[in-house]
Computed example of a mutant assay.
Amino acid sequence: MGRVAYVNGRFARHGEAMVHIEDRGYQLSDAVYEVWALFDGRLSDAEGHFVRLERSLSELSIPMPMSRRALTLVLKEAVRRNRVREGLAYLQVSRGVAPRDHAFPKAPVAPSMVITVSAVDRAATEARAAKGVGVVTTPENRWGRCDIKTVALLPNVLAKQKARAAGAYEAWFVDELGFVTEGASSNAWIVDRDGRLRTRDTNANILRGITRRTLMEVIAEEGLALDERPFTPDDAKTAREAFITGAGSLVLPVVSVDGTPVGEGRPGPLALKLRRLYIERAKATAV
């Protein structure tokens, strides 16, 4: 059986699933999304992703399409139908279908909801982590509400393409003060020259990463020093280690920034340790 998608109450073959041409997510990017990592067919960091989904929808005045309990059941059924054990579950909720107009529909419409599931080759991702990845920097040009996980991702798309063209894995946005905000699809971290873990605080224009939050719990349990303090690309280039976090990348060592090696130019011991500890936590708490 091929891939299966869920669209507005129905499961359909992935290649035949579709949304209405006047869906506001398609027309206006009037939608939000969430991504869960899957370990052994279970949703990782489930609570955090549900909380962030509810917050993103609330910030845009879009109602939840169904209760959290019902949504959990639908997500799990989508995973089951796709027979994916290791992978990603993607959820998108738009304001719904209405004649195209920038303002909200005058008459209430039901939100649209799409779920897709894809497999991940864990052996390949572990090989990538063992080798480490490169990042490039790019000027911050996104809107001022990156705390909302909206589907309006064109700046992120262009940043990712810049990274790909440079042979890198990720791009880090740099604000007008010269500080790294976050990656195109991840949060950015370094282990500075004093051995302290540093990442941007969420009062800045960054997404409240769920993997980031869980990793902070791991860091606290390990008794490691952590500063939610900004850093520059030069700080990263002279750091002991660097890494990124996200549902897709988990905890992924960074070995170069704009072509300059970080540390010894290979994955650092702390990043690799935190990756292992995070995965252990994610597997143990997945639902």
Rank of each mutant, 00 (worst) to 15 (best):
E16V: 09
R80E: 11
R55L: 12
R52Q: 11
V7Y: 02
R200L: 13
N141F: 03
G134L: 03
N156G: 09
T150L: 02
A89E: 00
N141C: 13
I206E: 01
L158R: 07
H102Y: 14
F179Q: 12
F231S: 07
A165G: 00
G134A: 12
Y26A: 15
V7H: 01
G195P: 03
I190S: 03
W36I: 13
R212P: 04
G167N: 09
E59C: 12
R275C: 07
L274G: 05
V157M: 09
V97H: 01
D192A: 10
G134M: 05
Y26F: 15
D175E: 07
K162W: 00
G132V: 10
S44L: 12
D101T: 08
A124K: 12
D147E: 13
V117R: 03
A204N: 03
S186T: 15
R100W: 07
R10W: 00
R3K: 11
A5T: 00
T138Y: 08
Q27T: 15
R240K: 14
A236V: 10
A171M: 06
P269G: 06
E34V: 11
G144Q: 14
R83M: 00
I190C: 06
A103Q: 13
V7S: 02
T238G: 10
R80M: 00
D227T: 09
L270I: 11
R95I: 06
V255T: 14
E77Q: 06
P261D: 09
A282I: 04
V157W: 00
E34T: 13
G48Y: 10
K237M: 14
V84R: 01
I244Q: 05
A165P: 00
V51Q: 13
T116L: 08
R275D: 06
N187F: 07
G183Y: 10
A130D: 13
D194V: 03
R240D: 10
V191W: 06
S118G: 14
G167Q: 08
R276Y: 01
E54T: 13
A46K: 15
H49R: 05
A220V: 09
P230Y: 11
L43G: 08
S112Q: 09
V191C: 07
A184C: 14
P261Q: 07
A271M: 08
R80F: 00
R266D: 01
I206W: 02
E170W: 04
G268P: 02
Y33L: 14
G48T: 14
K283E: 09
K162I: 00
E54F: 04
A271S: 15
P155I: 09
I206G: 01
R229A: 15
V255N: 02
T211A: 06
P111L: 09
V133R: 07
P261T: 08
L207R: 01
R200G: 01
G15K: 10
T202Y: 05
D175L: 05
D101N: 14
D175N: 14
N187K: 08
R200K: 10
D235M: 05
V191A: 07
E77I: 00
V19R: 06
T202K: 07
E16L: 12
T72L: 04
K273L: 15
F173V: 06
A168G: 05
Q27L: 15
F50L: 13
R68E: 12
K273S: 12
R128D: 10
V109S: 08
A286N: 02
V254A: 05
V133C: 11
L91N: 03
A70W: 00
I148C: 08
R55D: 14
E222M: 13
F243H: 07
V133K: 04
G246V: 05
D201N: 13
A78E: 00
K131Q: 15
R55T: 14
R95S: 06
